[in-house]
Design a protein around this nucleic acid. Sequence first.
RNA 1: GGGCGUAUAGCUCAGGUCCGGUUAGAGCGCACCCCUGAUAAGGGUGAGGUCGUUGGUUCGACUCCAACUACGCCCA
Length: 935
Amino acid sequence: MSVEETTKNYSDTLNLPRTDFPMRAQLSKREPEILARWQELDLYERLDRRNEGRQRYILHDGPPYANGDIHLGTALNKILKDVIVRYKTMAGFDTHYVPGWDCHGLPIEQRVQNDLGPDILKKSPLEIRLLCEKHAEKYIGIQRDQFKRLGVTGLWQRPYLTMSHEYEVGILEAFREIVARGYVYRGHKPVYWDPIWKTALAEAEVEYQEITSPSIYVRFPVLDADQRPWLQGLKNLSFVIWTTTPWTLPANLAVCLHPDFEYVVAQIGDEHIICAEYLLSGFCEACQLPAPKIVSRHRGAEFEGLHCAHPMIEHKQSLVILGPHVTLEAGTGCVHTAPGHGMEDYLVALKYGLPIFVPVDEDGRFTDDFPMMKGMSVWKANPLIVDHLKEKGLLVGHVPLRHQYPHSWRSHKPIIYRATSQWFMDLSKGVRDRALEAIDREVEWIPAWGRDRIYNMVEMRPEWCLSRQRSWGVPIPAVHCDDCGDATLDLAVIDRLIAIVAREGTNAWFQRPIADFLPDGWACPKCGSRRVEAGKDILDVWFDSGSSHIACLEKDPRLGSPAALYLEGSDQHRGWFQASLLIAIATRDRAPFRTVLTHGFTVDEKGEAMHKSKGNVVDPRDIIKEVGADVLRLWVISEDYRNDIKFSKQILERMSDAYRRIRNTIKFLLGNLWDFNPASDALPYPSLLEMDRWALHELAVLIDRVRKAYDEFEFHKIFHLIHGFCTVEMSAVYLDIVKDRLYCQGPADRERRSAQTVLHEVLDALLRLLAPILVFTTDEAWQYLKRPEPSVHLTDMPAAEAQWRSPDLAARWHRLLDVRSDVSRGLEAVRRTKQIGHSLDAEVHLYPHSDEVRNLLETSRSILDEWFITSGHQILGTPPAEGDGVFRGDHVTVRVVRSPHAKCERCWQHRESVGRNPEGTSLCARCSDVVRRIG
RNA sequence: GGGCGUAUAGCUCAGGUCCGGUUAGAGCGCACCCCUGAUAAGGGUGAGGUCGUUGGUUCGACUCCAACUACGCCCA
């Protein structure tokens, strides 16, 4: 018999690991198979049924927009939600996760319009709406498949859609309640306006092109200089403003100054002008004025309340006001303010209670409100206005300017800013204040700074403009009078609409005659006319999604509002969280969520945002194809999502490494449990070897910490805890050590069963703890455990047994780990000299540095060889000098020598007993005994 | 320009927080070594950080203060 064959034979007597659980994951191939199995199992239904009746924990899904494929950020968001939902489910809650989609809105309408091209002219709003609906349906299907592929579980067959009839009813009910409470009013607001198409445009529909505009400096003569002692006696005193849109001057109502800037009164010839000091010289140069002489300096705030003569309209005045939006980048620091034609002008006008004056009609022509040029287009009026100013001596300078100016994406012609009639939600009648109160009293914000963020936003935001001049959305059921032009919101009309929408959807508003929605004999409340038509405006889509707590949560008896948790990106402090909060406050007088959790944004390795133009966009589908959804999920939880979440090639490689390590640990555990039946083979806790009880203590610590991290949404800690446990406590220490017992002892020996008992507990806990994260891998492994539950997802979170926790045991074994580290370093030093290879070739002489360590070692003698994986040890007295196999560690000095004994061919330990057995084999006493017993 | 954040080894994270004080930790990766009975695995040792920058307070700051820079989100 050759040596090789002998070795092989002894190999056969070992209990080597056995499992078909593959080392290589091949997730991109295996995951779809597991998904199919879940489908067959009806896993979601089983889970959902199991949950029914338990305490609720409702994570309410913020609906993604039903347009395009999912991106990395969407994937991250859904994975985070899924981890929470799955954890809470396994922790004993009824989670009933209903995903949703946001279906209405401009992006889809725009896509449809683009596809239609010029044909759009021939389409009615209703036809456009049908195309939009189709588009949304298509992408809901696409995204749903992509989410499922990520392993996200939920009620995919019955999601909530903001365009469903049921949901639309909910939106209208919310709107009705807000109308009923008197929070909706008609007001004005400037919008981008295309005078060619006579239509409002959204920001996204505006493109910028370079044009030449008249750039003029205009005097606003001060009428009441005598009100300020420091202005008295100054001749020809005026503010000077700068504008590139002379046509907005007729609509001027104010001159706006920055309260904190330094302004000067400057003398130029026989006149005095007021402008920001910083801009004085530049402006004089531009207007080719002689050098000014500074008369006095004042803060902007000191001019507030003065009046100027209106430059275009006789007997009209312009008020001097203050605003923080004034800049020193160009002009004079005195800003011509026309609230009907500029967003900032509008906002500052609201503060001062100025009217929103719009002397321009939908064709871009002046109205009766500016009789001088009535009927003339603003573009034609521009030069005439400049001439007029020159005649009146108000023009200080005129310098044509090339600059970027907004154009319509449809007509490609310059557009104007123009205030139009809109519906608003009134925040001033208590809604804002109650919302602020709720932010502090009713909601936990995670991270805590989310509170400051949304609080400031709600506090500072303008009134909510609810109306949009689009087709794809929920109609605002206003009735417009043909005679007086008044628009009315009538609860009876809304109720009729709601009843019809429940059956037909909101298309009804666009296709049925208005009479269907009017109570008998309905007439315009203002003029009594019966000639009326349906309003064409739709609701802001934020109102759609912001109604979800009514349209989704309140409608489903399994859900209910408020929800336990909303979880979205931090952009939603302005978006969904705020819309939801305002609607809930305005209709239910409370917040719709108890906790709001936010995550950051996915960025590239440099921490920069992902943009198509930058070419750093990552498609989650590519990652899934390359490494699988479980690795992607592992990445999601490994990063602290409260900050920005970085993604890079390197990070993904590290994640794949980490995944492999976890997978291999699972494989090793499975491999050593092939002949272990927990019911009959597990040892009771008191019968376990001490080292094994220590391992259980470590497991208990892991379980406690991981569960705490789950409960506190600190997922990245879970990654580090579990990965560290697999790598350090298990692979590097416990599993490495326990291999001897597992392989070499008799299959049913106490030493082996004790270790297996622990391995089984570890594997069981590990799979459950990881189940919400590695949803595929843990379930794949679970099948090899042959448990009654067909899926790990139908089990509960593990809980550590109280008796496992033993701080005394832990303290003792942590000291032993310290010594082990010294021994390892000593072994390594000798290994470098090639005197030993495997640590089993060595015997270690230990010289403790303290009585405490000596005592520790003396009382641990029976396990020291196993613990160090060496062949023999001695505990000795005075440490020798360092050098030649002697290493001075932190706790012991170690001398490493080659074991003088022969090597057991079975367990590879060097033992005095090797060969001293009746059979005459080159085995140690332990192994010859085992071999004899197993025959 | 405003509001809210972030900035510790190549990567992912700890920590020191409120009471500033000896050599700032872990895992991964990397280098080198060992093993070949977890094997496209496993073990060991080791090298990596002026804790974003600059000032200030202090006997002493990564930790306190200020300014700045970069990056992110939301506004303007």
